[in-house]
Amino acid sequence: MDHLACFTPADLAGNTPPDLGGFRWKLLAQGDSWFSNATAKLNAHANLLQELVFKSATAAVNCAGTGNALSHMVDLQSSPDFVRLLAGTEAPAWDGVLLSVGGNDLIAAARTPAQNWDGTPIPLELRLLRRQTEWGPPSAGVARYFSEPGWATYAGYLRANVKHLLSLRDQGPSTGKPVFMHCYAVPMPRPAGAESNDDLGAASGPWLYPALKTYGVPAADWAAVSRLMVFHLAQLLKSMAADKEAFPGLFVFDSTTVPLALAAPGSTGISGDWHNEIHLNHSGCFKIARAWSEAIEMVLEGKHLIQPTSGRKGRGASTPTS
């Protein structure tokens, strides 16, 4: 098994570009901080791509870059290297595309306050959490805190953006090639932000912890609310991959099936498989990436299986939703 060889667009444009012809599989990658190769981020938490391993020699050109990674899906519009390498007139033919997207958008939606700076209310369809006066009955469990209208808005936004990305793929020589996305792991809301050298810009964290406090969600329910949101996202992504007509060639790996060591509630630093509140440390990335690698290689080799619509596989590593 060989680790994924990672290059950047700058490497391709350099005086001695890498010879991608020596690799069986050639992939293009783009994503959020889970893919970023900024030195500060790699020193701090981890890069999921670094832990991918394949039986056949595989390379990826990672457009997440050394600066701030994607904070929102719409940032694809300001990612010229990725768009050029995917759909440009001189774009190479890739065997697949690796994406780490949607998580930052989910966090942003959860952090949307109940009112604007001037005190005017923000409607439920534009946020994921409910004010205490809007909570449902206790019989609804933690779903009582969750804004289904806001989720519908988020889901429509994500679906539209992924469709746009697939259309970009089909404008270039990689038309119809598989696009691989992962779900996210369930973070423990806690006061664990990024260090000052994490290069995460204004989003220094913590992220979910202050939002849940502001909305008055009881601390005993924080972990369950986080799980609810991440599982909603996982189901959304898997439903998209299952819709082959609307999302052709999309494969989603369910990271929520990979057992991880949870962070301790209230902890402020590295805990379990987590570096901070929303970023995995190296052990967490290792666990998810090794399972995802198997799913990716099965698709590349034409051996992928359709994930059952009911029931859960114990490991969830080798059956991506297709």
Rank of each mutant, 00 (worst) to 15 (best):
W34S: 09
F35E: 00
F35A: 01
S36H: 06
S36N: 10
N37S: 09
N37I: 08
A38C: 04
A38R: 12
K41R: 14
L42T: 03
A44Q: 09
H45M: 06
A46I: 09
A46Y: 10
N47W: 00
N47T: 07
N47V: 00
E51L: 04
L52R: 04
L52Q: 03
V53R: 15
F54T: 03
K55Y: 13
S56K: 14
S56P: 06
A57I: 08
T58C: 05
T58D: 00
A59P: 05
A59Q: 07
C63L: 01
C63K: 10
C63Q: 03
A64P: 00
A64L: 07
T66I: 05
T66Q: 12
N68M: 15
N68F: 14
L70A: 15
S71D: 08
H72A: 13
M73W: 13
V74Q: 12
Q77T: 08
S78V: 11
D81H: 12
D81Y: 02
D81V: 02
F82C: 05
R84Y: 02
L85R: 01
L86I: 06
A87N: 04
G88F: 02
G88I: 03
G88Q: 04
T89S: 10
T89G: 01
T89A: 10
P92W: 11
A93K: 15
W94N: 07
W94V: 06
D95V: 02
G96P: 02
G96M: 02
V97Y: 00
L98N: 00
L98I: 01
S100T: 07
V101F: 04
V101I: 13
V101R: 06
G102K: 03
G103R: 07
D105I: 08
L106R: 05
A109P: 13
T112V: 14
T112K: 06
T112F: 06
A114N: 10
Q115R: 14
N116S: 12
W117A: 15
W117M: 11
W117R: 11
D118C: 12
G119K: 14
P121N: 12
P121T: 14
P121E: 14
P121C: 12
I122N: 10
I122A: 13
L124W: 15
L126N: 13
L126E: 15
R127T: 11
L128Q: 05
L128N: 07
L128H: 06
L128D: 11
L129F: 13
R130H: 06
R131K: 10
T133Q: 11
E134I: 04
E134T: 11
W135P: 00
P137C: 04
P138V: 10
P138M: 09
S139K: 03
